[in-house]
Amino acid sequence: MCSSVLAKTQMWGLLARPLQICIIGAFIVSLGLAALYKFGVAEPRKKVYSNFYRSYDSMKDFEEMRKAGIFQNAK
């Protein structure tokens, strides 16, 4: 009689390892996209707004709109 021992199959951890790799990958990708949005969209937008409001005169803009007839109550 021949007695050979078969290796036991792995029954746990079959999903955990690939899922852990996917979660780490998703975290890295999301951080990269957040940084890309911050430096590619948000910071340039802040700069444009600050440049606009640095030289913006609200009273001059109001007078132009009043002369154009946009406001009905302001004479």
Rank of each mutant, 00 (worst) to 15 (best):
K67A: 10
E64L: 06
L19F: 14
F62V: 01
A42T: 15
G13L: 04
C22H: 07
G32H: 08
K47H: 06
Y53H: 09
R54C: 01
L33I: 14
I28Q: 03
F71I: 02
N51V: 04
V41S: 06
K8T: 04
S3F: 11
P44G: 00
R54V: 04
P44N: 06
Q10P: 02
L36T: 11
K47W: 01
V41H: 07
S58L: 08
D57M: 02
S58N: 08
S3N: 12
M1K: 11
M65D: 03
V5D: 12
S3V: 15
F71A: 01
E63H: 03
F71N: 07
Q72L: 07
L14K: 11
V5R: 04
V41E: 07
K67F: 12
K67D: 13
L36N: 05
F62P: 00
K46N: 10
L15S: 12
G32F: 15
E63D: 10
K75Y: 03
F71T: 00
L14M: 12
A74V: 15
I24K: 08
Q72I: 11
L14H: 06
V29D: 08
K47E: 15
S55E: 14
R66Q: 09
F39C: 01
Q72P: 02
R45N: 08
Q10R: 13
K8N: 06
K38C: 04
L33F: 13
Q10F: 01
E64M: 06
K38E: 04
I23E: 06
G40Y: 03
L33C: 15
A68F: 09
F62N: 02
E63P: 04
F39K: 10
S50Q: 15
K47T: 08
V29H: 01
T9Q: 13
G25C: 12
R66W: 02
I21V: 13
F71P: 01
E64N: 07
I70P: 00
N51S: 12
G32E: 03
C2S: 07
L6H: 05
K67G: 09
K46T: 07
I23W: 15
Y53E: 05
L15A: 15
A26E: 04
F52E: 11
L15I: 12
A16N: 11
S30R: 10
P18E: 05
P18V: 10
A7D: 08
L31R: 02
Y37M: 07
G32W: 09
I70E: 06
Y37H: 11
I23P: 00
F27L: 15
Q72H: 09
K67H: 08
E43I: 13
S3P: 02
F27N: 09
M11G: 13
S3A: 10
S55C: 03
N51Y: 00
Q20A: 13
C2I: 05
A74P: 00
Y49K: 03
N51L: 10
W12R: 03
L15N: 09
G32I: 13
V29C: 13
A26M: 14
L14D: 11
C22I: 05
L36H: 07
Y53C: 05
C2K: 09
L15F: 15
Y37T: 09
Q72Y: 04
Q10W: 01
G32K: 08
A35D: 12
Y56V: 04
S3H: 09
G40N: 01
I24G: 05
E43V: 14
V48L: 09
I23M: 08
A7C: 01
A68R: 13
V29A: 15
Y49N: 00
I70N: 03
K46F: 04
I24R: 12
V41T: 07
R54D: 05
Y56W: 10
M1Y: 09
